[in-house]
Structure formats: structure tokens, C-alpha cells
Design a protein around this nucleic acid. Sequence first.
RNA 1: GUCCCCAUAGUCUAACGGAAAGGACACUGGGUUUUCAUCCCAGCGAUGGGGGUUCGACUCCCCCUGGGGGCACCA
Length: 527
Amino acid sequence: MAKLINKNVRARFAPSPTGRLHVGGARTALFNWLFARQNGGKFILRIEDTDIVRSTKDFSQSVIKDLKWLGLDWDEGPDIGGNYGPYFQSRRIEIYKNYASALLKKRKAYFCYCTLEELEQRKKKMHEKGMLPKYNCRCRNLTLGERKEFEREGRSPTVRFRVSGEGAIYVEDLLRGKVSFETKMLGDFIILKSNGTPTFNFANVIDDALMKMTHVIRGDDHLSNTPRQVLLYEALSFKIPQYAHIPMILGRDGTKLSKRHGATSIADYREKGYLPWTMINYLALLGWSTQESQQFFNQEELIRSFSLERVGKSATVFDPRKLEWMNGEYIRKLKPNQLVDLLIPYLRRENWVTKRIDPLTRKKILKVTELEQERVKVLSQITNLADFFFKSDFEYDRTSVEKRLKKDYVPPLLKKMRKRIAGLSLFNEKNLERLIRDLASEFSLSPGEAFHPLRVALTGKMKGPGLFELAVLLGKNEVLRRIDRAVEMLKKQRNKGGGSASGRPRDSGSRSGGSNPPPPANFFGRE
RNA sequence: GUCCCCAUAGUCUAACGGAAAGGACACUGGGUUUUCAUCCCAGCGAUGGGGGUUCGACUCCCCCUGGGGGCACCA
């Protein structure tokens, strides 16, 4: 079936800047964006900063930054303007006040002088009686005199919407069909706070109407708010948009995703080293799928294939493991040269490379990248994977030393190896491999029994890239130094009676003659 | 408590009322590799329970259970 496109579509993302952009918010933004883009319609960004206590300018900026980082773009928004601005709710206060006045005049709203404490108390009492904690409208029909009296007491009023009428309110939802709510379940609700700012339900409705939104795609935690909003649309004679309440994203334990579940903000994932498109691709699959359960999409494919009709209805669990897998897939698809650029910030953070990178150093980083690419799932992991390429005084992994170096044959083997390597005229992979294999058979060892100790001596680990490739990259002299260092380390441990295997020779007190360990110089700086 | 939403493996999910319930992550085993990773092969594993409707139910209806959300001068 050919997809119907509707160029008049206007969809929006309306975050409140009370924190960094959350994965749930990001997915809501994504679905709106995809929907707008595939229809050739407009995607609008509006910042809902009416909670003056919790909203900050910094969070507004960071939300915008994170959306851009994800690769989302908008046709109207706080940073670029548009025909229906301003796009910060905090700059639209007068608009809300005017509409509130209109409702007051029509007696669809009224001033309420109850204080927070009074409301709190009343709610508590109702709760104790097992009643619905719905507002009983003490101020609903105040006389002018009574109002004057309250004002003399110094109370500043809120404006409440008068909920009246019998029967049900129907919400037409694109995903869930017609959902009905009993009007009598709703209490009169506040539309203007006593400080003059609007509440969410009020500002949201007015802006969506004034900004001519055709579709409201949002988390289904908003479904229960919708009947109130419908009442407002009707009271203000606004056209009700099409709703689509998408399933929420939960944490591993099935509860609402929160900091308890670890990283939840887009910025967290950016900093760890997830690629923006990984986030988009993964998030798109949370609550939506194609008939074939396709896993990977490029941007055009995603825009083309997305459809609201195929968005599911049940809550989804955010799975960091699948996200990491997907990031690894995308990292492996990168050209090594692209990956180098992404990796460099993490190397800088460790002070392994200088701010300016000369061509030779870059070439070496490229080589390291080629050797490690298939192991990197998250960019920041490069730090643990490749430390030994950048520093000579890397630490030895304890279990690697135990398993691969604590053998009687190892010290003599390494010493012999050192001698042979020193005598090697052409230090390349082929020659090195032949050398080690020959040595293994001289010692009556399997090749592996010779390879493994050398690997630990050179890298401190028992996992990593091809042994001969990494050795050649390190260079002959560095390889010799590292063998010396490992032999030295083993000797010291033996003297100490087989104590800690993770000791760094340089750090274990003054030296008593013998060969000195290599200086802690930067490998790339020195060679 | 009450209202609303939801229900296929541990997780994301597919399946005009008519397949052996398909794919992906994770996990397990095997192969390749000097190790790890990659790659390849194989395996484990699901329609929450109970009633209907129907020749036939993952699919439609009802009840139960479970989970989530709202009931704010938060959004």
C-alpha cells in the first residue's frame, strides 16, 4: 500500500528543560521528527520552561545541543524562530494570561484562593476517608465580597478551570483508538499558578493550538492528561490535534527509567562513546518495528519505513547490551580514518597525545585503530584496550601474569628471545614469527606457550591484537625494553616470594643496580 | 484507593482468524584465530491464567492476575 503523505503535518517535540535530554525524550523527539520528515511536513521544537523553579537556561541549551548531536533538525524553534513564536513558553506568559482572562469572563474558569497548605490538608483528609483526591471546589462560587476578603488576607489566587458536564470525554488516539474518561473523575484543575505562569495542561494546549500542530506524539504517561486538555480545546474553541500516545521506556526492572538504572541521558552516552546514529537506530526500534524486524537502517531508510501505525502499544525496556552491540556494529563499519578522529578525544583525555597531532603520530594512531577496531564497542573503551601502545609503564594485568608468566620456563625463554630479537636484522612480522616458533621448538614448547608470555610482556594483557603486528608497531627497541621490564618484574616478584603480580617495577622502591627500567616516556613521543 | 493504558522467550519484536509461532540482543556449545575480538555453524528459550466465540484463536469478547501511568500551583 502506498504511503499517504500529508505535507501539512506539523509535529513537535516540547521538552521541559529541567534536566538533560533523556533517552525517552529523545525517542519521542525522534518519532515526531520521523513522522514529520516522511510526510514532508514540519517539525517544531518548543521549550516548555514554565516551571521557573526547576527549569534552567543551561538545560535548554544542553537539550538543544543533544538533539542536534543526534542529527535531528527542526523547521521552527527557539534558536531559529518561525512564524508561530516565540518558542520558549517563558516568553509567552502574556498569551496564556489573555486566554485565562477569556475563560474567566466566560465563567469557564474562576479564581481560587486556597493555599497550598489548605489543599494539602484537604487532600490528606480525603485520602484517609478513601475518597478520590479530587479537588472540592470551595472557591467555585465565591461572591465578590468573599474574594475581596481573601485578597485582604494577602492571598494571591490561582485560576482554575471549571469542569462541568456529565458523561464521558473521548480521546481519539491513533494507536489506541477511542479512549473514554468519566468527566466526573476530573476535578477543577489549575491553569494559571498564583505566580501568573501557566500549568502544563494549559500552556501545552494553547501553544499546540496557536502553533497549528496537527499531531501530538508523546509518551503514554500523558494519556491520562488528555481529557483535561480536550476540555480546554473545547472551551477555547480550538481544533483538537491527532494524538498518538507512544509506549514508555522502562528500566531493566520494569519501572520507569531513572538514574538508578545507570546512564539515562543522551549526553551520558555521547560521553561514553556511542555514535549518534547508534542511538537513533536503537531508539527507533524501541516500540517500533518493520514487518521483517529489520535491525539496521540508514537515515533515508528509517524515514521511509517508519510509520505510526506500526508503533506498538506496550511499554519497552531499555537494553544497554543491545545498544552496545549495535554501537560495535556501527564502529566496525567506519573507515579507520573516521574512527581515528572519534578516538582522539579519548586519547587526549588520558594525555596520551598532545593537542596538536603531527602527521606521523596520526599515522601511528591510525595503525593502532586498525588493530583495535574490531574490539571497540564504545569509543571510551580504547583507553583500556590500547594503553600499552601509548605508554611504556603500563600496568600488568594480575591474572594475565599469573596465568602466562608465572612459569619456570618463562624467564629463560624471554631472555633468549630478547637476545635473538636484538640480533634480528629485519624486524618484521614474518621474521619475528619465525624466530618465536623456532625458539618454541628449541624449548620443546607449543607455539602458544611461547606467544603468550611475550604478549603479556609487551602489553600487560593476555588479550589483544595480533602479537606480531603489535610488536612491529611498537618497534624493535621498545620490544626489547619491554622484555627487560617483564623479566625484571618477575625477578622482583620471585624475590618477594611470589606476592603481588600487578606491581609496577618502577614504583617498588629504590633500585639495587642492574639494568634500569625504561623511562615512563610516551611511546609515540619517543620513537 | 480510583481512573486509564498495556500483556509473544531474560530483552527488543514479527506473524489478513488458518505455518514447525519468524528475526535480533543476551546466553550456551562448536568451528576459524597465537589470545581476545571479529566471522561462521548449532542450541536454549515465548503466546501470563481461566472462560467463551469459531471447523480453527497469539490474533475477537469477558473475568482474573501482573506491570505501568494519571489523580500536583511538575512537565
